[in-house]
């Protein structure tokens, strides 16, 4: 993050690129949730192939940024975590995917963000 006195960044980030979604697992979580009403922790862990602790960290980061909502629900006597996408999360995903496509099409930046 640049301070007010810093010179403008020399890199040209494509509009909508979200550093938070740069980790593929986070992008996968948000992408899956964009097609589902909600998904359980274990399912998200299976899809991303991450460990429990890494999945948990990704979910916490996404929830703190307001991209997803987390809730606990009891099932078979155990508390399970369910995640759902927020409106902000959907908008961020759409913008991020558009930015990735822009990178692939060679527009907006030249190899570096």
């Amino acid at each position: 993050m640049n301070s007010v006195s810093d010179p403008p960044a020399m890199t040209t980030e494509p509009t909508g690129f979200s550093p938070l979604l740069q980790a593929p697992a986070r992008l996968q979580i948000v992408a899956l949730l964009s097609h589902a009403q909600d998904a359980e922790f274990q399912r998200l862990k299976d899809v991303t192939g991450c460990s429990d602790s890494v999945t948990s960290k990704h979910l916490s980061a996404l929830a703190e940024a307001g991209l997803i909502r987390l809730r606990k629900a009891a099932q078979d006597g155990r508390s399970r975590t369910w995640a759902s996408l927020t409106r902000q999360g959907r908008a961020t995903l759409e913008a991020h995917v558009a930015a990735l496509r822009q990178i692939l099409s060679g527009g907006g930046l030249d190899g570096v963000v």
Partner: peptide, 15 residues
């Protein structure tokens, strides 16, 4: 960027 979009597609196909 290409790998990220491929990972996204894989997750969607899994779903």
């Amino acid at each position: 960027a290409r790998a990220a979009l491929a990972a996204k597609t894989l997750a969607e196909q899994d779903l």
